[in-house]
């Protein structure tokens, strides 16, 4: 379970996410959507413990599995695909943790369509293959909570469908899935619940309700740019007041 209590994520004094409260229930599958600059990635990074400049409270139970945005990775680092996947089996378990068995790594690679890629340098993979590699790492990590930041960026439709099947499988196993996404059609088709963010929480509900025309219009109307001379937040009741 992940609970957000009046979370405001800041860049200096500027809020990227403003007074958001709510819960990602255990076993839920939620998409975080919103226009550019809505604070989606910042909120996910805050939940993952990567963005430390925030007010409010983030309560997390259970190990976190993370699929970060590709640009944050050093693809020039000379590491093989098998080694990347094996990272999932040792991350967070200390320096003496036993490495996952090669068979388990190969199985994970196979399940994302990368059988035979074990010795291939990760940096030589295409963008779509690389994304599948990160899914294989997530699979080996076997965490109860999985955070995914734009998992289908640079991935073709067929691969997206394959990876969505994997997400549904993990959801079916009782894991909590939280994914930052752009494709509203995909979200409407595949995700049971949605958090629509536009710096403030516009809606956090079943997907059909969250993505109603009214909510989408409100999200669109939020100015993307920060105001030049903003007023101080008085911590007044917000859109998301619970």
């Amino acid at each position: 379970m992940i609970e957000l209590k009046n979370v405001t994520c800041l860049y200096g004094r500027r809020p990227a996410v403003h007074h958001v409260s709510g819960r990602f229930e255990p076993g839920s599958m939620t998409a975080i959507v919103g226009p550019n600059g809505a604070g989606k990635t910042t909120l996910l990074r805050t939940i993952a413990g990567l963005h430390r400049d925030f007010e409010g409270q983030v309560i997390r139970n259970g190990r976190i599995g993370l699929l970060p945005q590709t640009p944050s990775l050093d693809k020039a680092f000379p590491i093989t695909s098998a080694e990347v996947v094996a990272m999932g089996g040792i991350a967070g378990l200390g320096i003496f943790a036993a490495a996952p068995a090669p068979a388990r790594v190969s199985e994970a690679l196979q399940s994302v369509g990368l059988a035979g890629f074990e010795r291939r340098l990760a940096g030589t993979l295409s963008a779509g293959q690389f994304q599948r590699l990160l899914f294989a790492r997530l699979m080996v990590q076997d965490a109860p909570v999985m955070l995914l930041d734009e998992p289908f960026a640079a991935v073709d439709a067929r691969t997206t469908a394959d990876l969505m099947r994997l997400l549904h499988r993990w959801h079916g196993e009782g894991r909590t899935i939280v994914a930052v996404l752009h494709d509203l059609d995909l979200v409407a088709r595949e995700f049971p619940s949605t958090l629509l963010l536009a710096r403030d929480k516009i809606a956090w509900d079943r997907t059909a309700a969250a993505l109603s025309a009214e909510h989408r219009l409100r999200a669109r109307l939020v100015a993307e740019a920060w105001a030049d001379d903003p007023a101080l937040c008085q911590d007044a009741p917000r859109l998301d007041a619970a």
């Binding site: 993952a48 990567l50 944050s72």
Partner: peptide
């Protein structure tokens, strides 16, 4: 290696 290749993943996993 983890920190060099994927610092976000490293930090998010403790």
């Amino acid at each position: 290696v983890l920190e060099s290749f994927d610092p976000d993943f490293h930090r998010a996993t403790g």
